[in-house]
Design a protein around this nucleic acid. Structure first.
Lengths: 238, 238
DNA sequence: CTAGATATATCCATATTGATTATAAGAGGC
DNA sequence: GCCTCTTATAATCAATATGGATATATCTAG
């Protein structure tokens, strides 16, 4: 069934007010690149395109509660830390009917990302390649194919990447993408993946330590064939 | 009619999906303080409390179009420059029914603010006194009385002030609050009003000029009984 | 022409940043 | 046990940005 055929059987005037959904941008740094969890649509409209996990907001459900529920039901993620991103409400963003969606951004460590992939087999990890020039990006499958995105989800993902870059050096978003204990090099790699540019190592160390956000744990990374680095943990500012 | 009495005649289950509204935070710097345009509610619920201008989003209306329409119809502001602020959707934020509201932020020069006050007589200019400590604020009438705010509109206004502070030194929000041509001292006063702290004058001048955002016009301010200052205009970065 | 007020420019001490170089600490080969 | 390799961590220096103070310029009012 094509999009056109589907729409012929759909009554867009069935309701007189917009529906409200939440859509989730669930991100981790995977192999040095920001990556999002996407679902392949198997029914029209936009069949075979890739979409963000989402769902309708219940009449007695807070927006954030709906987002947490979608994270659990569609991505197998329990107790996700979600932040409201932006609300998308263009009239024709969904061909079926008027839907306003509140996008949420969830950040997780690579291990949680892999766990979600294992728990919900329909999920695909899409690497988001940031254009060197600046604004745009491309979503690619693990095999390197460009992924066509459904509806306005490319715009939502782009907004998420911009938000991430903007908050990087004054908020704790960097730590949300790392395990509880991490080395300074891992932290720097996360920053570099988000910014898309290499950073100066000593200056980065100094800035991070001076901010007072991280505390050494006294333990060191294991399994390296060279000098192991100190493990730090995130410590909200006093 | 009290709120309780009103609610007894209201059926909160009349509809099965949330309604969507836009609420507008219309700000200017007035007499050295951030000030917002508010409307006094004359009917329950929350009668006699002060509310942000707002309205329902039409089924065939983009979110931003609805915000522009509300700015025109309820505040007499034509062609407002509005930026989406945040979406508030707590289940009980409105006692009548489930309403999700998308808040928009509009900045204007003091002259446009005064013009709006003259055009829509129901509007009240509320000065927003930022608590010295940090987060909170108080809304005061021109006579200095504390204004009780309706629904969650205090939270919305607080979010607007935080957004304004956050964007101040890397975006053009400062210029949106000034007339087309302005002196460096006016620009500094706007920044000080938003931050709530005095700023170093030579350092402020240097930073603003170095950013390349402003260009001298060659004309000078008039009517001063002392040396007139150069008038600058905003020039988006090349 | 002078006084008063404010704009604008200059100067210096200090903090921050980019970049390079030096030292420390572990693993593994011999 | 010692050497080498690799990376972590520290130290150093120059360049830049910032806070604060002072000096100079330019207007109005009288």
């Amino acid at each position: 069934m094509s999009d056109d055929e589907f729409l012929r059987h759909y009554d867009p005037q069935a309701f007189d007010r917009p529906s409200i959904t939440v859509d989730l941008v669930l991100l981790a740094i995977r192999g040095g690149r920001p990556s999002a969890l996407l679902l392949r649509r198997d029914a029209p409209p936009q069949a075979e395109r890739w979409a963000l996990p989402g769902g309708f907001v219940g009449i007695d459900e807070d927006l954030e509660a709906a987002a947490v529920r979608v994270a659990r039901d569609k991505a197998g993620i329990e107790g996700a830390q979600l932040e409201q991103l932006y609300t998308f409400g263009a009239v024709n963003r969904d061909p079926r009917m008027r839907i306003v969606t509140v996008a949420y951004l969830g950040l997780m460590a690579e291990s949680a990302f892999e766990a979600a992939l294992g728990a919900a087999l329909q999920l695909l990890p899409a690497a988001l390649e940031i254009d060197p020039g600046g604004e745009g990006f491309a979503a690619r499958s693990p095999e390197g194919e460009a992924l066509p995105l459904a509806f306005d989800h490319a715009e939502i993902l782009g907004t998420a990447l911009m938000r991430l870059r903007g908050k990087l050096d004054w908020s704790n978003v960097g730590f949300s993408l790392l395990p509880e204990r991490f080395t300074l090099r891992q932290l720097q790699e996360v920053h570099e993946a988000i910014l898309g540019t290499p950073l100066n190592k000593p200056a980065f160390r100094r800035r991070m330590l001076d901010k007072g956000w991280i505390a050494p744990t006294g333990t060191r990374e294991a399994g390296a064939s060279f000098r192991p680095a100190e493990l730090y943990r995130f410590q909200p500012n006093t």
